[in-house]
């Protein structure tokens, strides 16, 4: 568990709740969240889901934008390897995600704040657990309060080319 920050001590006092933006692929993780609903599972209400067709669609810039706009964490959910509806979009998502993680750590953003999970349409329980776990982890970290550098974030698309 990461050490609590100063932010945390302030914010737990005023009832702060972390805000998480979640990008879920249409075929696995979004459906897992649907299944969690039909199964009436209960989990932390902190995440706001944005549906994309494939985790491969998640542009690192989306994640940066979410963090810059006040999200305390970003969750990306895709299909397990071998299950991608589009063969291997999730592989591409992973590659991009690792790169993004390095960039964010360079900016001093804790790695627990962004998370990539493979959650199949049947794994509602995993979805619930990931949601709860991530909220707990970010609560321990405290609010992000990201300061956007004056020159803006590095253009991730530029580095994409190298890894593609």
């Amino acid at each position: 568990m990461p050490e609590p920050t100063e932010n945390l001590q302030e914010s737990t006092a005023n009832g702060w709740e972390p805000k998480i933006v979640a990008f879920f692929c249409n075929w696995c993780t979004y459906l897992a969240a649907d299944l969690a609903g039909t199964s009436r599972m209960k989990y932390a209400p902190n995440a706001r889901v944005i549906r994309v067709m494939c985790s491969g669609r998640v542009d690192p810039q989306f994640v940066m934008e979410a963090l810059a706009r006040g999200a305390d964490g970003v969750l990306v959910g895709g299909c397990h390897f071998g299950d991608c509806h589009y063969q291997a979009g999730n592989h591409k998502a992973l590659r991009r995600f690792r790169l993004l993680q390095r960039v964010l750590m360079g900016l001093g953003i804790e790695e627990e704040r962004i998370r990539l999970e493979w959650i199949s349409a049947a794994e509602a329980d995993k979805l619930r657990d990931v949601m709860n776990e991530m909220v707990a982890q970010i609560k321990a970290l405290g609010p992000l309060d990201l300061e956007v550098p004056a020159e803006g974030f590095p253009e991730l698309a530029d580095v994409e080319e190298v890894t593609a």
Partner: peptide
């Protein structure tokens, strides 16, 4: 329509119907 190429395009010249960048930014 997976959109993987859209996310990867360095010049932002690939777009995806129903999942345009500005639509997703607006959601964020």
């Amino acid at each position: 329509g997976c959109g993987t190429c859209v996310a990867a395009c360095p010049s932002g010249s690939i777009r995806q119907n129903l999942f345009e960048d500005e639509q997703i930014y607006e959601e964020i």
